[in-house]
Simulated scan of single mutants.
Amino acid sequence: MSLDADQIVDRRRLRRKVTFWRTLGVLAVVAALAVGVGVFAAERVPAGSPHVARVVIGGIIRNDRERVEMLEEIGRSGAQAVILSIDSPGGTVTGSEQLYDALRRLAAKKPVVAVVEGVAASGAYIAAIGADHIVSRRNALVGSVGVIYQFPNVTELLKTVGVTMEDIKSSPLKASPNPYTPVTREARAAVESLVADSYGWFKGLVGERRQLSGSGLATVSDGRVFTGHQGLDLQLVDQIGDERTARAWLAKEKGVSEHLKVRTWTTGRVTSEFGWLLGLGHAALESAGFPQLASVFSRSARAAASRVQLDGLLAVWHPPVE
C-alpha cells in the first residue's frame, strides 16, 4: 500500500531529527574525547612531582595571558626542565614578544629546550630563541626573520561601483593607511618606520641569542625560511633531531634524567586546533534540516573568532600562492 503525502513528509522529518541527534551525539563524544585526552595527559603526572614539562606552541601566536600564567606556574612546579614543541608559522609581533619574555623568565628557573617539529618561522622562531637550546627536525622550516604589515586597498573597486569614502580627520596621518583611499607617500613612510623599528628589534634579538653578526646575521634575517639542516650551518639551530635528542641534551648538559616522565601542560582552552569541529557542527545542523540553528551556530563561531583578530604588525610566515 502506498504512503500518502503526509506520511512521507512525517517520515522525512523524523529521519532528519534522528540524523541530527546522532550527529550531535558523535560530535559530543569526539569533543569529550579530545578534551579528556588533553586533561588526562596533563594530569597523569602531578605538577608537584619531578617531571619534564612539555609545552606545545602551535597555530597562530597571539597575546595569551593564560599561556603566560601557565608558564609561570611551570616555573613554580616540580618540573626539572621544559620542552617547547613548536609547529607554528608565527603570529603577531606583540604576541611573540609576550611569549618570548615569558620563556626567558622561565628559563631563568628551569632549563628550556625547543624542538621544532614542523615550522618555527617568524614569531615562532622568536619563541624558539627564547629557549636555551634549539633542536630541529632535518626538514623542518626555521627562520623567516622579518616583520610585515598588510592591508587591503579597494579604491579601484569602489570606483567601478561609484562609491567614495569621505574622511574628516584631525590630521593627515590619522587612520592612515586605510583601504578606501590611495596610500599617500607620508602614510607609507609612517608604516615603513613601524616595520623597520620592529624588524630591528627582531634582528637584534636573533643576533644576541644566536651570537650572529655581520654577513651571517644579514643572511638569516632577509625573510627567508631555511630547513633545519640549512639552519644548523647558519647557527639558527643547535642540533638535528627530535624530542629524544632534546632529552639526551638535557641529561648531558643539565643533569635532567631521561627517565623522568613528561607532563604536557595546557591552558585548558579549546583552541583553533579544534576548529574543525565548528565546521562539522554547522554542516551537521544544516544537513539535518536545521538551517536557522546552523546560522546561529556560525554567527556564534564568527563572533568568537572576531575576538582574537591579529594586530597590524605581524611576524608570521605564509608561502605565496601563485
Rank of each mutant, 00 (worst) to 15 (best):
V112R: 09
A107D: 01
S136L: 05
S136Q: 05
L99V: 01
Q98P: 07
A131F: 03
V119D: 03
L157W: 11
L99K: 05
S88N: 07
S96V: 03
V115K: 09
K110A: 12
G130V: 11
K159E: 14
P152K: 13
V145S: 12
V113Q: 08
T155P: 01
G123E: 11
Y100W: 13
I148V: 15
V147K: 09
G91V: 07
G91N: 02
D132S: 04
A107T: 00
V147Y: 09
L103T: 00
S144A: 08
Q150V: 13
G91A: 09
V112C: 12
V161Q: 03
Q150S: 12
P152A: 12
L141W: 15
A107I: 03
I129C: 01
V112K: 09
A121C: 12
T92S: 06
L141G: 13
V93P: 04
P89K: 08
S96L: 05
K109W: 05
V145C: 13
K110E: 01
V113N: 06
I129V: 14
E156S: 12
T160V: 13
Y100F: 15
S144H: 14
T92L: 08
A108K: 02
L103R: 02
Q98V: 07
V115P: 04
T94S: 08
R138C: 09
D132L: 06
A120Y: 13
A114D: 05
V112P: 08
G90D: 07
S122N: 09
S144R: 03
G123M: 05
S144L: 01
N139F: 10
K110H: 11
